[in-house]
Design a protein around this nucleic acid. Structure first.
Length: 460
RNA sequence: GUGGUUUUAGCUCAGUUGGUUAGAGCGCCUGAUUGUGGUUCAGGAGGUCGCCGGUUCGAGCCCGGUAUUCCACCCCA
């Protein structure tokens, strides 16, 4: 076998022990909050049938799905004429029938339909697993990354939306983030606006353009709107909506006037108001979630399937894309043949949150996470003497390791030092004789003679 | 998919108009200290200059291709 130079696929990463400690801290924090709000965990396979995924994310999305080549002589079975066309898109379904999951929502919809007879609705589930996207990596963007999703199916209540605001607030606050915005919008409001200017069919183009207001400014948005089929007079009508300013209440009042003639628009406003009311009641004892919640009608994520409220979370402390998003899709499972089942969910982008916490230095001291005690190894006799001690410490719940060979003490202490192990137990001839072991505090350098029971007492 | 950028020691990076033997800091190893790390001092190991090809008497440096890093666009967590 030839030697291969080690390398990773573009956009993927190894996670070393120190990083895993931090990643698990994020996952555990988010999962704890999910559980507290009544969500139960599930997992689904990394790969799905390609047909399960295609057509769910739009044309752009389909291109970003990682396909898995069929096994065996996959080319031999393909029609010669089809191959001759060199049409990759058409050939794909012939040579690939499986793909890596692109998000957690579509696999969840599939799961719900397949297990509908076993599920008690409303069904609240959370899921923390990697997803894969074949786009170009850049800042905060990876080809393999983890999503932490919580979704409810079978409950049209806007209380769910309101609880998601609380979940976002609680999880991100627990992670140490202070200044972040939970942006909320409603597809129905966007529909109302598109309807108002008489171009309901261009709603997606409209929202994609105004979504960029932050980035390219009003002139840029106007330019893009023109390119996407809007007229100057359309833009004049849109301007007051795009530039909507003020408090949430003020924005809602303005929108009510603008959308007075749009039934669907008013419905969207009503939904938003309901969510705001629920949130303020839920947050009676802590007004923060209310102040973090911000109506932003330029928000237009995932419009391909969202039908009601749309969420996006951004930190204001670091330049980073959104660290979370979500929304309601009235017909979540319709694509798999189960009609009239509404779903609403949110997602945390764990990898981006990691980058943000790293940049803000918000990871807690995790020294206690690793090995607590290293037992030295002087020689064969000391090693044998140490074995029961090792197990006694472990039984007491202290993470302990015995240096596995009798090398120089210098080297063993250097090992403890590089692994940030706070205590070393030294066992030599003298210690074995009188049963008092030397416990060395690596930080202060102090040493004391203690029996095993005292050591355990001191470290627990 | 489009545009730009990066790649030299384990890591972070210097490297002049193309010219002998490619450097630094950190890390690593050895010793000062055969039972004491993190500080100090002395010494040492470690490089196919991403890869393939071209120009040249001569390439880390110039040219072409390719991979890769990071960034922006599209889109998105």
């Amino acid at each position: 076998m030839s030697i291969t130079k080690p390398s990773l696929p573009k956009g993927t990463r190894d996670f070393s022990p120190q990083e895993m400690v931090k990643r698990n801290y994020i996952f555990d924090t988010i999962k704890t909050v999910f559980k507290k709000y009544g969500y139960a965990e599930i997992q689904t396979p990394s790969m799905e049938n390609l047909a399960t995924l295609t057509g769910k994310y739009g044309d752009e999305g389909d291109k970003l799905i990682f396909k898995i080549l069929n096994s065996g002589d996959f080319l031999g079975k393909v029609d010669e004429q089809l191959l001759a066309t060199k049409n990759s898109q058409l050939a794909t379904s012939k040579i690939s029938e499986k793909a890596l999951r692109y998000d957690l929502t579509v696999p969840f919809a599939r799961y719900v339909v397949m297990h509908q007879n076993d599920i008690a609705f409303p069904f609240k589930r959370f899921q923390v697993q990697p997803v894969w996207r074949a786009d170009r990596p850049q800042k905060g963007r990876y080809r393999e990354f983890y999503q932490c999703d919580a979704d409810v199916v079978g409950s049209p209540s806007l209380l769910n939306e309101a609880e998601f605001v609380l979940i976002y607030h609680e999880a991100l606050s627990n992670l140490g983030l202070k200044d972040f915005s939970i942006k909320i919008n409603n597809r129905k409001i966007l529909s109302g606006i598109a309807e108002m200017i008489g171009k309901p069919e261009l709603i997606v183009d409209m929202t994609v353009a105004i979504d960029k207001l932050d980035k390219i400014g009003l002139d840029g948005v106007s330019k893009e709107l023109l390119e996407r089929g809007f007229t100057e007079s359309d833009i004049e009508q849109l301007k007051p909506v795009i530039l909507l300013d003020g408090s949430n209440v003020e924005k809602i009042e303005s929108l009510k006037k603008v959308l007075a003639n749009s039934a669907i628009g008013l419905k969207g406003i009503e939904e938003i108001e309901t969510v705001f009311n629920y949130v303020s009641k839920l947050a009676t004892h802590n007004p923060q979630p209310t102040t973090q919640l911000e109506l932003d009608i330029t928000l237009a994520r995932g419009l391909n399937y969202y039908t009601g409220c749309i969420f996006e979370v951004k930190t204001n402390e670091v330049a980073m894309g959104s660290i979370g998003g979500g929304g309601r899709y009235d017909d979540l499972t319709g694509m798999f043949g189960l009609k009239d089942l509404t779903g609403v969910g949110i997602s945390f982008g764990a990898d981006r949150i990691y980058d943000v916490l790293e940049e803000l230095n918000l990871f807690p001291e995790t020294a206690a996470q690793g090995t607590q005690v290293l037992i030295s190894n002087f020689d064969e006799a000391a090693e044998l003497y140490a074995l029961p001690v090792l197990q006694q410490l472990r039984t007491a719940g202290i993470a302990t390791e015995l240096y596995p060979s009798a090398t120089k003490l210098k080297k063993q202490l250097g090992y403890a030092d590089s692994k940030n192990i706070p205590f070393v137990v030294l066992i030599g001839a003298e210690e074995m004789q009188n049963g008092l072991l030397t416990l060395k505090d690596m930080k202060s350098g102090e040493q004391q003679q203690l029996d095993v029971a005292s050591i355990i007492e001191k470290l627990t």
